[in-house]
Amino acid sequence: MAPTRRDVLLASASVVGSALIPFGVAQASNNVFEAIDVFTGGASRLEGGLLIDAPEIFDNGGAVPIRVVAEGARRIALFNDGNPNPGVAVFSFGRFVRPEATIRIRLARSQTVYAVAEMADGTFREASQKIAVTVGGCA
């Protein structure tokens, strides 16, 4: 049977996708986990309760939009593992503001972005997302 247009599109999409995301050998090129430990004071981090809303593929590494939300968080910190320095931003929320923020960040290459939330009870949450950028931002 001849391949349908749909088959061809799906096949080419997966080839493009795998070419863009060389994450099989992903390894931190900075001290991201040490930076996270400084933020948490070495406390362990639980999964869940913290959302990173960011594109999986983005063309411009110079301005990648990232939204973080953690209901009940006092602070949320953002980190990266592929720029020269792991820190990105730390948000501290007062009583008028929902524990949610959107910011635009630089990613020098495709890499993983980490968010760590300090909750009101002093515990920490962690979430991460891989982001592929087609043109790296000069970080």
Binding site: N85, G87, V90, F91
Partner: peptide, 10 residues
Amino acid sequence: ISVDLEPAVS
């Protein structure tokens, strides 16, 4: 709200 920013911010 307060935000501490690093050079990785656009």
